[in-house]
Nucleic acid binder design. Structure first.
Length: 759
DNA sequence: GTTCTAGAAC
DNA sequence: GTTCTAGAAC
């Protein structure tokens, strides 16, 4: 149950929080039945405001409903708004009933129209008097106006029900709410529905019709492209409306997650698309013929690797020479026109002006990765707003020619909200312009090589995004279902969709370079030496692996464990056990009653991402030592339960295994990140890591920041809590059994009873 | 990783 | 006014 089970821990002084639950659905979708069933069993006082019966049993007005709802809230009763509420305008006044003390939820009955109609038709004596043959026409007409609710309308929670089991889950969730309970905020259960896609189609077609046709007339390939998109691919195209519901600040986090669950994952049919400008041919004056050859060569190399994804070469001018050269060459080479398109338009307005959905755009960046200059770089930075500059700075300070850096675009960026762009890949091509510093002096041997590398880096970066999104989806589909439907949120643990180690490392650094570039660094180093700011310090030198021209070293504060591992003799007071391979010490800031670290002593094994089959024996040894210490602690305190595992993306350098008791009773456990780093899939159980590395050679890391900012849920009963102090007071009392997932496969280490059985 | 602190949330 | 979070600095 998603319900906060800890009402006792909240104390008597806890203020009762009311709810307005706006039901959204056509006649016959099951709204009234929903109310009846919840109200029959709920211990929370509810009032059902039904427009069909509000006027002495007869149909009334919206105003009457509003008055009645306000009165009920004043009496400290929660309210169901039982009317169709199918469009935003219809809902708006009811949403306004919300306040800090009153949550506004939507429960959406997004059931097949056929079902609603057949129920309405069969219905005798329905309160709204909508029965018989008339029903079909009414339901159909109403559904045409349907506008699914969004968090940005002011809802704190939206649950979408698309089948009977979803409805049942929603009934259970609301039925179980006691007077003081709340439900977690966010958007739950949304799958790609026909209705949503239909809406997308309408908008998409409208936009495609206007500016694009004007520009692409007389251009056969482009018309061809347009036709392809509108006729075949529209339903697979994820428009910004779908991914960029703007949310109030407090909802954003939850919503972002919900979005990626709901949209990224469920619409298996949206096509990841990279829009890229021609690199180096504008300000860097690269020869157009040569550039076109390289584009076509690289595109044809990558389209086969990209699966479902598409590449789109974009140029602002309809008379663009590079576009026509590339089009001709692509045609000659028979490149699949489903996978590679050319497009005339502004790369920052592809969706809003061109109707083309591109989740990733490439930027022909400058080496400093700074805004301004001119051309595409200036346009993209300006359209994306400061969010892109900040996000870029976090990833990299500079770039060498031939390389690319992937920057996830924050949802605050207009490019994200308006255009649906989730990532920008900055790529730096070779510079042939004698007016600019570091130009290649007409050396096209080097120039072509660097340009090839640039496209490879760019496409590899895009391929990585595509792969990681696919992986993320599969991981999360499981979760989405369980959030709405049930009690234990079982995070899938699997080695499917494993991302290769190389990719993981690149992801960490956010920098992509082509295979060729990795092998021969000659060219880049010449330029690179003055471009990339040199880092100093012994540790940093050892510590920059795969830095790809951009340094992102461990901070000095992150080196503590590394120093202990390398020089344990200098930390005799802290170290509890030393061997050739490992050291054991108490975590300096324990997040539970007992919290130990088993640290590997191998130089170069900074984190789990670095571990491969070669390290299996070490990992097993670390596990054995961790287990030994857990058992030692259990002798002192039999009530403890331990879990052994790794953080997907640790903050401290040097591979370390956490051995942590599951009471989480510690003054050092202070924030969401602390909690979620031990209680979401970010924490990888040692047993699973060993099993996976044994099987697949690598552990699948879940180093997504969103996991660390997820809602706070009890690790035992999975109830959600609004803040850390509340969660802490709940876990102090919660005696629910651990979720089955943790009880399996020896993920938990429990004390033994006197008869030798687990306690 | 922590500490500090501004400002949001209550 | 107090509590809590989240971002910057280290």
């Amino acid at each position: 149950m998603d319900v906060d089970g800890g009402s006792s821990s909240m104390g008597e002084e806890e203020k009762r929080k009311m709810m307005v639950v706006i039901l959204v659905g056509a006649p016959g979708s099951g709204k009234s039945t929903f109310c009846d069933r919840v109200m029959r069993v709920s211990t929370r006082p509810w009032v059902r405001v039904c427009q069909d019966t509000i006027s002495n049993g007869k149909s009334g007005t919206k105003t009457q409903c509003l008055t009645s709802a306000a009165r009920a809230l004043k009496d400290e009763k929660s309210v169901f708004i039982d009317r169709c509420n199918l469009d935003r305008e219809q809902r708006a006044d009811f949403v306004k009933l919300g306040s800090p003390q009153i949550d506004v939820h939507a429960v959406v009955f997004d059931l097949p129209a056929k079902l609603c109609i057949s129920r309405s038709v069969k219905r005798v004596g329905h309160e709204g008097n909508l029965q018989g043959g008339k029903a079909a026409a009414v339901v159909n007409r109403m559904l045409q106006k349907k506008e699914l609710p969004k968090l940005s309308e002011g809802f704190s929670r939206i649950a979408f029900c698309q089948n009977e089991s979803d409805v049942q889950a929603a009934i259970s969730a609301y039925s179980a709410l006691g007077p003081l309970d709340t439900l977690p905020s966010g958007c739950f259960g949304q799958k790609s529905s026909d209705a949503k896609i239909q809406l997308g189609i309408m908008k998409f077609l409208k936009k495609v019709d206007a500016p694009m046709n004007a520009e692409s007339k007389g251009n056969s390939l482009q018309n061809n492209v347009t036709t392809e998109i509108t006729k075949e691919n529209y339903s697979r195209c994820k428009g910004p409306e779908d991914i960029a519901r703007t949310a109030s600040k407090e909802e954003k986090e939850v919503e972002d997650l919900a979005l990626s669950y709901a949209d990224g994952c469920s619409s298996s049919d949206n096509i990841p698309t990279l829009a890229f400008p021609s690199i180096s041919t504008a300000d860097f004056q690269f020869d157009l013929e040569k550039a076109a050859d390289i584009i076509v060569e690289k595109v044809s190399e990558f389209v086969t690797k990209l699966g479902n994804a598409r590449l789109v070469l974009v140029d602002l001018s309809s008379g663009s020479k590079i576009l026509s050269l590339v089009r001709a060459k692509a045609k000659q080479k028979n490149i699949d026109s489903d996978k590679f398109l050319t497009f005339v338009g502004d790369i920052t307005r592809l969706y809003s002006k061109g109707g083309l959905c591109c989740n990733v755009i490439a930027n022909a960046a400058n080496w400093r990765l700074k805004a301004g200059g001119g051309g595409v770089n200036a346009a993209i930075f300006s359209a994306a707003g400061p969010a892109l500059e900040i996000a870029t700075k976090e990833r990299a300070g500079s770039l060498t020619p031939g390389k690319a850096v992937v920057v996830p675009l924050p949802s605050t960026s207009p490019l994200f909200s308006r255009e649906g762009v989730t990532h920008v890949i900055h790529v730096l091509g070779p510079n042939m312009n004698p007016q600019r510093p570091n130009f290649l002096n007409n050396d096209y041997i080097k120039g072509c090589k660097v340009l090839r590398e640039a496209y490879s880096s760019l496409f590899e970066g895009f391929a990585f995004i595509v792969r990681s999104q696919e992986a993320l989806c599969k991981d999360r589909t499981v979760k989405l279902g369980s959030v709405l439907s049930e009690s234990t949120v079982d995070f899938e643990i699997s080695c499917m969709n494993q991302v290769s180690n190389t990719d993981q490392k690149f992801k960490r650094e956010g920098v992509y370079e082509s295979e060729r570039n990795k092998k021969s660094k000659g060219c880049q180093e010449e330029l690179g030496s003055n471009i990339i700011g040199a880092t100093s310090g012994e540790d940093n030198a050892k510590n920059e692996k795969n830095n790809g021209g951009v340094s992102k070293a461990w901070g000095s504060w992150a080196q503590a464990l590394y120093h202990v591992a390398m020089h344990p003799e200098m930390h005799k007071n802290d170290v509890m056990e030393i061997s050739d391979d490992i050291v054991v010490l108490n975590d300096l800031y324990p997040k539970a009653k007992r919290h130990l670290l088993v640290v590997a002593r191998f130089e170069g094994l900074d984190r789990l991402a670095d571990a491969s089959k070669d390290h299996l024996e070490l990992l097993r040894a670390m596990h054995a030592v961790g287990l030994k210490w857990a058992e030692k602690c259990l002798i002192e305190d039999k009530t403890l339960v331990f879990r052994l595992g790794y953080h997907s993306a640790p903050s401290m350098r040097q591979l370390h295994l956490h051995v942590i008791s599951q009471d989480f009773d510690s003054k050092h456990l202070k924030n969401k990140k602390h909690w979620n780093s031990f209680n979401t899939p970010f924490f990888l159980d040692s047993v699973d890591v060993i099993e996976e590395i044994d099987k697949c050679g690598r552990a699948t890391l879940k180093d997504d920041d969103r996991l660390l900012s997820m809602e706070l849920r009890c690790h035992r009963c999975r109830s959600a809590h609004p803040n850390l102090p509340r969660l802490k007071s709940h876990i102090g009392n919660c005696r629910a059994p651990f979720p089955p997932l943790l009880l399996q496969n020896s993920r938990l280490v429990l004390g033994l009873n006197e008869d030798g059985t687990n306690q």
